[in-house]
Amino acid sequence: MLDPALQAVSELTATAAQFTESPDFYPFLRYRSSTLHLIAYDCPAREPDGGTRTWATLPRASAVTYGAKHP
C-alpha cells in the first residue's frame, strides 16, 4: 500500500503547490475502515467561503493489488 499512497500524496501535493494562490497548503491523511483518505487544501479552505480542496481515497485491497502489479 505504500507505493500507491506515496504516488497519490505526491500528485496531490504537486497539484496544490502549482494551482493554489495561497503560499500555504495543508495535506491531511487519515486511515479508517481499511481506506486511506488523502486531502490537500489551501489555507482559505478552512474559511467558510473559500479555498480549494482536492482528495483521493485508496481502499486497502485496491491499493495493495495496484502496488503488486506496478512495483
Rank of each mutant, 00 (worst) to 15 (best):
A17L: 05
Q18Y: 03
F19W: 07
F19C: 05
T20D: 03
T20W: 02
T20G: 06
E21D: 08
E21M: 04
E21Q: 10
E21P: 00
E21W: 07
E21I: 03
S22E: 03
P23A: 11
P23S: 09
D24V: 13
D24L: 15
D24I: 12
F25W: 11
F25P: 05
Y26V: 14
Y26C: 13
Y26I: 15
P27K: 11
P27I: 12
F28K: 14
F28R: 15
L29P: 03
L29A: 15
S33F: 04
S34N: 14
S34G: 11
T35L: 01
T35C: 02
L36R: 02
L36C: 10
L36F: 10
L36M: 15
L36V: 15
H37C: 06
H37V: 06
L38T: 01
L38K: 01
L38F: 00
L38H: 00
L38C: 09
I39S: 03
I39Y: 00
I39T: 14
I39F: 00
A40C: 13
A40F: 03
Y41N: 07
C43M: 07
C43G: 14
C43R: 12
C43H: 12
P44Y: 07
P44I: 13
P44N: 10
A45H: 01
A45T: 00
A45C: 01
A45S: 08
A45L: 01
E47K: 09
E47I: 03
E47M: 14
P48Q: 09
D49W: 10
D49H: 10
D49K: 11
G50W: 06
G51C: 04
T52E: 04
R53E: 14
R53K: 13
T54E: 03
T54R: 04
T54K: 01
W55G: 07
W55D: 09
W55F: 06
W55C: 05
A56Q: 05
A56I: 02
L58Q: 02
L58V: 07
P59I: 11
P59Y: 04
P59R: 05
P59N: 07
R60N: 01
R60K: 04
A61D: 12
A61P: 01
A61Q: 08
A61G: 05
A61C: 02
S62K: 06
S62H: 07
A63W: 03
A63L: 06
A63E: 06
V64A: 14
V64S: 10
T65E: 13
T65M: 06
T65W: 05
Y66D: 14
G67N: 02
A68E: 13
A68Q: 11
K69S: 11
H70S: 13
H70A: 12
H70Y: 12
